[in-house]
């Protein structure tokens, strides 16, 4: 009895060793193939110039009661001027599903055409599906220039 189990044990040990050795090798081999592929699929981070403020034109060029899209780095920003002539700026990216919003004179609101989301002129989501208000940007008038910058 004792004589026969010992060789069996050694055999099984040897088999286990081979199983883990080959199995582990297979996994390592797969990882060595899959890892570069997965890493390749991940787009590299492009070096972006961090934009903190942009010049959005001259005060005289922007009509009262209007809204225009301004480039802020690689993001769109909506610059509003109300009937009283005051400026405000918000991120133009709808907080719902990423569309670009627009100013609707007839509604006196910021409106997103994609899913009928509405924001008031303070950027607060007032109707439709948007879950959050629009991020506000700071508008500074320097002489004739309109400067838009990120709120700290």
């Amino acid at each position: 009895m004792a004589e026969s189990t010992e060789p069996m044990d050694t055999q099984e040990n040897r088999r286990d060793f081979l199983k883990y050795f080959l199995g582990g090798g297979l996994i390592a081999w797969l990882a060595a193939i899959l890892y570069p592929m997965m890493a390749y699929l991940k787009p590299p981070k492009q070096a972006e110039v961090e934009v903190t403020s942009v010049k959005a034109g001259k005060v005289g060029a922007v009509e009262k009661d209007s809204g225009t899209i301004v480039r802020f780095g690689n993001k769109p920003v909506i610059l509003l001027r109300n009937a009283a002539g005051e400026f405000r700026a918000f991120s133009a990216t709808c907080t719902h599903l990423d569309c670009t919003v627009q100013y609707r004179k007839d509604m006196g609101l910021i409106w997103c055409a994609c899913h009928n989301g509405r924001y008031d002129l303070n950027g607060r989501n007032v109707a439709g599906p948007p879950p959050r208000p629009l991020d506000e940007y700071r508008v500074v008038i320097q002489g004739e220039d309109i400067l838009i910058s990120k709120k700290a």
Binding site: I69, L97, T100, Q102, C112, P129, P131
Partner: peptide, 27 residues
Amino acid sequence: LFASAPAGIKPEWYFLFMFQTLKYIPG
């Protein structure tokens, strides 16, 4: 890339029922 989404924008008709549903679900 720097224009507002145009009014009346719609997906292809076969995505429309899902699109319309998303419009009705509150935030």
